[in-house]
């Protein structure tokens, strides 16, 4: 792990059980790093909330879909700062999912036509600059990579 004091560049890797109860501990780290970037004016205000929102959805998916019906395994989370971007990687050996086969929710609903679900991936894609998924094979982990360019406008839909 390299030094992240001053939030210049560096990488932190954390291993946790793939359970929702551990999400907020990792999320607090993600939020804290982004808050420092905001305070140093390397990211605009609101970045921390948006990146945390995307991370939460990613972790929720990992837990709910990756280990459905099975005893949860572990998840490795990487938070990496690179010039002009923050990169989150969520790695696990769960069942995985392919975000390319998940359609965007219909946001045109009003009244009783408003959708109750299907927003998670949309939130990730909207708040992050890139969302990439690499399905693992055997002992090779699934890797969900979320990249946020620090000059990204908020709420962009990709």
């Amino acid at each position: 792990m390299r030094d992240m004091s001053g939030v210049g560049s560096g990488r932190i890797r954390i291993s946790v059980p793939a359970r929702l109860a551990y999400r907020d501990a990792v999320g607090a780290l993600v939020h804290s790093v982004c808050i420092q970037l905001e305070q140093q004016r390397k990211a605009r205000s609101g970045t921390a909330d948006e990146v945390l929102s995307a991370f939460n959805e990613a972790f929720n998916n990992l837990v709910k879909h990756g280990w459905k019906g099975r005893e949860p395994g572990g998840a490795d989370i990487e938070v990496e700062l690179l010039p002009g971007k923050i990169v989150l990687r969520l790695m696990d050996l769960g069942a995985g999912f392919d975000p390319d086969h998940i359609s965007a929710p219909d946001l045109s609903g009003v009244g009783s036509d408003v959708s109750e679900g299907g927003y998670g991936l949309f939130i990730m894609r909207s708040f992050m600059s890139e969302v990439q998924y690499q399905r693992g094979d055997g002992d090779q982990a699934n890797v969900l990579t979320l990249v946020r360019n620090l000059d990204q406008d908020h709420g962009d839909v990709h």
């Binding site: 909330d49 949309f122 939130i123 908020h154």
Partner: peptide
């Protein structure tokens, strides 16, 4: 709504407001 009633929302701020805006729930 299915009971012919209505739900109104009050006081949305900060991160929840941003999510409502993104998902267009501020219109729904």
């Amino acid at each position: 709504r299915a009971l012919s009633g209505d739900v109104k929302v009050a006081g949305v701020t900060a991160q929840p407001k941003e999510i409502f805006r993104l998902l267009r729930l501020d219109r729904a």
